[in-house]
Amino acid sequence: MTREVKIYTTPGCPYCKMAKKFLGDNDIKYQEFNVVEDKAARDEMRNKCSSLGVPTICFDDEVLVGFDEAQLREKLGL
């Protein structure tokens, strides 16, 4: 199954690194947006996902704010 996974990050955020490592370790392809540099992505994260925290991970209709491995595992069906 291919699904579009987007992850919004900031460069200093350790939870973002952990989330990306988790996705990578589980062979899940994702698109990363650095919301410090990419203003359009920041607006998208704010408006579409109603989130003001990173990492924000979006796929299907899910929006997960923060890195919670158990929750992410469950929502991704891993």
Partner: peptide, 17 residues
């Protein structure tokens, strides 16, 4: 408002503000 303006990780979320 956690994740909607309330944060416990300044290094993570600071740049958003």
């Amino acid at each position: 408002f956690l994740g909607r303006g309330v944060t416990y990780c300044a290094i993570c979320d600071g740049p958003l503000f």
